[in-house]
Amino acid sequence: MGLNISLAPEVLFYIGTFPVSNTFFWFIIVWLIFIIGALFLKNNLKMVPGKMQNLTEMAISGAYDFTESIIGKGKRAERVFPLVATMFFFILICNLIPYIPGQAAITIYNGQGMVPLFRSIMADYGLVFVMTITTVITVQIITIAVSGPFLYFKKFINLKSPLKFFLGVMDLIGEVAKIVSLSFRLFGNIFAGEVLTAVMLFLMPFIVPLPFAFLGLLTATVQAFVFSVLTLVFISMATEIPEEKLKKKEKKMKTNQEIGQEV
């Protein structure tokens, strides 16, 4: 039995020409669990909470407090919270599901060969990439909304001096690097965990993989946390008003004051 490691998720079956990979399959299952859970929660909210409701409330309000502590109170936190919290809870559950014992052994015949039915959901670069792109697009939109389109493009393309042009190019590269590092961080960690577990199981099935499993559990939680916190940090950085605009505003206020004094 050889070790079969694939960077891409294995395709389970096709619906028409649409390939359903094992990660996509489980993504849909977790997605359904979340949606049904949300609907169930909405219909069963009580003034006097039960145990489950208490737990949910604690998780959500804790997450909200943390969001507020990073991005500041009020409207900003309220707007950003759904995206960030959904990312956190979704990634967390997705990362924890592989630790249900026994599922790694199930394989399925897909027409060409045996493929494992289960794969860690975040070990699918496509999904991670989608979430990263969501973050980056949100950040760009917020930046444009805060600093205005003119200043936004001026940040990247500046022809005033060679140094400024170079810095603008660096900024552009930085944005791309943000996407790459954010997505590959999560993907790399989870995929590496998968591979590590597979290799350890292949080499020594008993006891030895256990410490790695614990490490993987820690990684699963921390990566979910890191991904959402970095998203939050990027967004909160984008919401800060840039210096130039601030200066302009101050000038405007000053002139207004002067006019007011003259009047």
Binding site: V180, F184, V229
Partner: peptide, 27 residues
């Protein structure tokens, strides 16, 4: 603790770039 995790995640970026380069070399 959360700040430590975030800064560690950012420190990790270089290793991730290396991983990306490795993947590009391989594939």
């Amino acid at each position: 603790t959360p700040l430590m995790f975030v800064s560690m995640a950012i420190t990790e970026s270089t290793a991730i770039y290396a991983l990306v380069i490795a993947l590009i070399i391989l594939f």
